[in-house]
């Protein structure tokens, strides 16, 4: 019986395989399909809920898998986007540094671009940055630091591979400044941070008759004055006038400015390491 079944199977197989599409076995098969198709259709409809139930499980698993994949993809894209944003920001800052060279006659200075590696947490009293360049790169104490279109501060500590920059918003800082007012007189003062709000800089010791308006620019004076030793080259933008109170100017000889450099969002700075030959204006400062 078993042998008969196997033989029948082999005969069917051989016959079917060797036959054309219009042969008897194919015809029988088509007939069977025709008969079965309504049954299959009915069964298919009847069993659809069960199929959907299993399908729901499968879809849920697939959806979960897809969700995990998309989450991973999203995280990767987020990391990539952050990288891009950081790169764009750094690029913008570096471009601004390069642009400053042309705008403020700093092209003749040797400059060392440094990355900020540490920022002082308590910037109400001490406002300093630590950069990744030091004496091994020609950075020394007293050198001016610029970034983002304006003055940042000066190097106050320098070691082999790092240096500390004291910002103009530090309470110990004082910068000789010139107010570029409309009258064109260029009144000279001293820029210091106001107590309690380091980003509000004061230009002190101005003449009482200073003609100045909100929006006027204040730049480094680079003046030679034994009382105000200035490590800064002249004409580097420091800030813009934000408040002029005649009473305050009359009584305290001061106006308010805000720094041009975005001191809270810096990643790179440039340190003016070597003054140009013949530029002894600063060197003569006592």
């Amino acid at each position: 019986m078993l042998i008969a079944l196997v033989v029948v199977s082999l005969i069917l197989l051989t016959a079917y395989f060797g036959e054309s599409a219009g042969s008897p076995l194919h015809t029988v098969q088509r007939g069977v399909i025709q008969v079965l198709s309504p049954i299959q259709e009915g069964a298919s409809r009847a069993l659809k809920p069960a199929r959907d139930l299993f399908g729901w499980f499968g879809d849920t698993l697939d959806a979960k898998k897809e969700r995990d994949q998309l989450r991973a993809q999203r995280d990767a894209l987020l990391a990539e986007e952050i990288d891009y944003q950081v790169a764009i920001r750094e690029n913008r800052q570096l471009r601004a540094l390069v642009r400053m060279d042309g705008n403020h006659g700093l092209g003749s200075y040797e400059k060392e671009t440094a990355r900020i590696i540490v920022r002082s947490p308590n910037n109400l009293l001490r406002d300093t940055l630590q950069v990744d360049k030091g004496t091994s790169s020609g950075v020394h104490v007293g050198q001016a630091v610029i970034a983002g279109g304006g003055l940042v501060g000066q190097v106050t500590t320098a070691a082999g591979g790092t240096a500390v920059v004291t910002l103009i918003t530090d309470q110990r800082s004082a910068v000789g400044a010139k107010v570029l007012n409309r009258g064109g007189r260029g009144d000279i003062g001293l820029v210091k941070p106001s107590i309690g709000d380091p980003l509000d800089l004061l230009v002190q010791q101005l003449p009482r008759d200073t003609k100045v308006r909100v929006g006027d620019n204040v730049v480094t004076s680079g003046v030679i004055d034994p009382r105000f030793p200035s490590p800064y080259p002249p004409n580097i933008p420091i800030g813009r006038v934000t408040k002029v109170d005649p009473a305050e100017l009359e009584s305290n000889n001061q106006i308010h400015i805000s720094p041009i450099a975005d001191l809270r969002h810096l990643d790179f700075v440039q340190i003016l390491t070597t003054p140009p030959p013949g530029g002894e204006e600063r060197a003569q400062v006592p």
Binding site: L5, S9, L10, L12, L13, I33, L36
Partner: peptide, 26 residues
């Protein structure tokens, strides 16, 4: 026998080469 019959039915229903599934199910 059941294997042969079911195999043949599967081959018919799925329009496969007749005898293949029967042989395996035997």
């Amino acid at each position: 026998i059941f294997g042969f019959a079911v195999g043949l039915f599967v081959d018919l229903a799925l329009v496969q080469t007749l005898g293949v599934t029967s042989l395996l199910f035997i």
